[in-house]
Structures are given as C-alpha cells and as structure tokens.
Design a protein around this nucleic acid. Structure first.
Lengths: 217, 217
DNA sequence: TGGCTCTGCATGTGATCACAAATCGCCAGT
DNA sequence: ACTGGCGATTTGTGATCACATGCAGAGCCA
C-alpha cells in the first residue's frame, strides 16, 4: 500500500484479512448487538483502510452468515428468529457431538487439565456476570476440546454456527440470571476422564442446547 | 455501471451476484476440475465486468470453502485430501439425515411424485454416463426433499458442503463405472411413502456416504 | 547439456473516483 | 400538531489506476 501505517518489522497480514478477523471475533464474542448497522466507510475509518478491504471483509462475513445484507446493500448484524435459533442450536448439537466423540479417543490428561483450567475461567466470568467474557471462554472450552478431533472441516462448520449465533448469544446470556458455573462442562470433563462416549455425547448435547430454554420467555 | 451490456428490460441483479451464482453452480455441479486455477481478470473478462465484482464473488466462494486461496493470493478450486472428503461426507450424513427426518412429516404425495420424476432423470443421467448431469439431478433430488424440512439454515449448511465437494464429486463419479440407477433413492422414496423414519435415516445416510467407498482405489 | 539468475509479464491488493439509489431531515401545507 | 413531499447527504457499486509480488521463460555460465 502507499501509506504503510505500521513499520514492516513484523509479518504484515493483508488489510482485508485483518479487518475480517477483527470483525469476526467481535461478532462471535457477542460484542455487537443484534440489528446493529455497519457502513463500509465507517469500517474503513475504524481500521484506517479504504472501502475496498472493508467491502471484502464484509462480503466474507455475509457469506458466513455473520452479517445480514439488506436488499439495498446495507449490512447489519442479523436479528435471528426463534425458528432460526432452534435450527442453529440443532446444528450445534449435531456437529459438536460428533466432534466431541471424535476427540474422545485422543483426549489425554494434559488436554483435560487445560479444559479444567478454562472451565474455571468460565465460572469466573459467570460469577462476574461478564457476558462477553463468558461467551469467549465458553467457546474456548469447546474449541480446545474439538481441536483434538483433528477434523478441521467440521470445526470450521461449528465455528460458522457460533458466528451466526454470536449477536443473539449476547442477548440470550445477558438475559440469563444465573451465577452457578456450567454444570454440563463438568459432565463433559468427567465423561472424558472415564472414556464414556455415550455420557459425553449426552453432556455436549445438553450443554449446547441449554441456552435455548429461555426462548419462551 | 457505466456500460450496461444488457438492456434493462428485466430485473438487473448485481454484477457480483451474477458472477457468484454462475461460478457457484459451475463448481457445485462439478464442471470445474480440482486444482483448476482462476484469475480475477480472467473471470472479469468471461463475465464482461471489471475485477471488482470478480473479486467479491471469489472472496465469497473462498469463504464458503468452494475455492482455495493460496498464500500468494492465487485462487484455485481445492484438491481435497481423503481425510477432508471423509469429514465432509460425515457432515453430509449428519445434516442431511436430520433434514430428511424433519421433512418426513410434511412429505405429501405431490412431493413424492416429484421426487420420483427427478429420480428417473437421475437414472437417465447415469445411463448416459453424464457426470455433470448426474450430480445436478442428484442434488436436485436431495434439495427437493430437504426444502420440505422448512429449515433454511440447515439447508444452507448442506449446500455449503455440496459446494466444497463439487470438484471432487466430478472426479469421484467419473471414476464410478456403474450403470444401475441409484438404489438408495428408491429406499428413500419407499420410506417416505411408509412414513418410516428409521428406514429413511438409514437410506439417506447410505446414499450420502456411498460415494466414499472408492477412495481406497 | 544442465542448472542458475535475471528480467519481463501476469496477477492480487488497495485507493480513489463517478454514479445511482436509498435514506434522513427539513419545511410547507393542512 | 401532524403528515407528505422534496432535496441534501450518506452509502453501496463498479471501474480504473498505481504498486508490489510472484511466476516463468529466456539467456548465461560452468
């Protein structure tokens, strides 16, 4: 580019990729509200780039279902219907149960230790009522487990679902008024220790679909 | 645009969307070989647009896993490893079994008739050894059934998997030297008629994972 | 003859511009 | 005070340009 904003002392990743990654994590972690509008020039201003990289990042996120593109081309984070949330939760259950099942035979003690450490962080976020922190550490817990499945295509699919649920997860967990740490995570860890696949599948399914119960309210 | 190549007598869809759709169906139907390289200027030339819409279409397809982006930015259709193919087939099984199961209670006679008609087209393509035609009609068969599930998010996910498998499906079915019509499709139709959900799940799973057997060769 | 380098072409990236359309706000009329 | 219309501004879209980089083929040397 003509104006290098940062010295080239480190590996320079493409501008559109930097914008994409930043927006992606912000959306996945629930840092943006559902229905929030975005503009290409605004994104470009925020990241110090022109419209072109902003457009590419937005297009990519739209393709992944993380952003909604109105008929006039305006982009905003989607407001999901209850039916769509149910579908996405069902997809989480299908894919993540399979990922956990594939990770089980490879789950050694070091992994279980790391999961327990992450889970204590999750509990801490719940106690602090930090919705964004809770979502972030909770996803870290799941991703750490699923990475052991050695199934990158499935993991990518699961992350796409997380991405689509991001903005509403924030609203969902913000409505959630509990302070108890996640019980299902303990069941997951216990099943991993015991090598008990049926219990693991049940625990993951329960953990993943639990947030759905508050839709009736 | 400054140069309207077509008169505006019909509804004009955005140029990048037209390019995207055209490339997408070509990839999904297996009309491009795995590893085939694409250039932005070449795509622009083919569709009579500049690089900008071509770039957006390509970015979108990369995001969906339909195209592979090398580290230097070159795009090509991906050459899938056997492990990745196995993953994608497992995803197809998971998602499509669920879709079929959800479609079952809504499957009336009119739908079953349409499925039988499409299936005869599939058989015709098999007899003619038309790989592209086979893939196209086969996907039409599945999509017609899954549309009844009223689960757009799941269907989109399934189509994304089809898209990723597109280029290799062509190679796979090209290697397939059979002339018998798809037996599993008949089982699917029979299960739909009988309202037999377990049989339906089995038949869909079998149909979807069948192409995998020839990977050992 | 084989391997290496160097140069020129092809290609992706990002910025900028012109244009169309949509959106928002203001003002007049009732 | 409310509503409808109109204009200014915002916004997305596509084209084009400058630039850096990667790739390949030609030419050179051992």
């Amino acid at each position: 580019m003509t104006l290098p904003t940062r010295p080239n002392t480190e590996v320079t990743t493409a501008a559109h990729d930097r914008v994409y990654r930043a927006l992606r994590t912000r959306i996945m972690h629930g840092e943006v509200a559902p229905g929030e509008a975005l503009t290409l020039r605004g994104i470009g201003r925020d990241f110090g780039v022109s419209m072109t990289p902003a457009r590419e990042a937005v297009r990519r996120l739209v393709a992944e279902g993380a952003l909604f593109l109105s008929s006039s081309g305006r982009v905003s984070t989607p407001e999901l219907s209850n039916e769509r949330i149910e579908e996405l939760a069902a997809l989480r259950a299908l894919i993540e149960v399979e990922l956990a099942s594939r990770a089980l035979p490879r789950a050694h003690m070091a992994l279980i230790d790391r999961l327990q450490t992450i889970n204590s962080n999750v509990a801490e976020m719940v106690a602090k009522r930090d919705a964004v922190g809770y979502i972030r550490t909770n996803l870290e817990f799941h991703r750490t487990l699923y990475l052991r499945a050695q199934a990158p295509a499935m993991l990518a699919m699961a992350e796409t679902v997380w991405l689509q649920l991001g903005p509403t997860m924030r609203a969902l967990y913000g409505r959630l008024r509990r302070t108890e740490p996640p019980q299902d995570h303990r069941l997951i860890i216990a099943a991993l220790k015991a090598g008990d696949e049926p219990s693991l599948r049940l625990a993951v399914r329960s953990d993943v679909t639990k947030g759905l119960r508050l839709l009736a309210g």
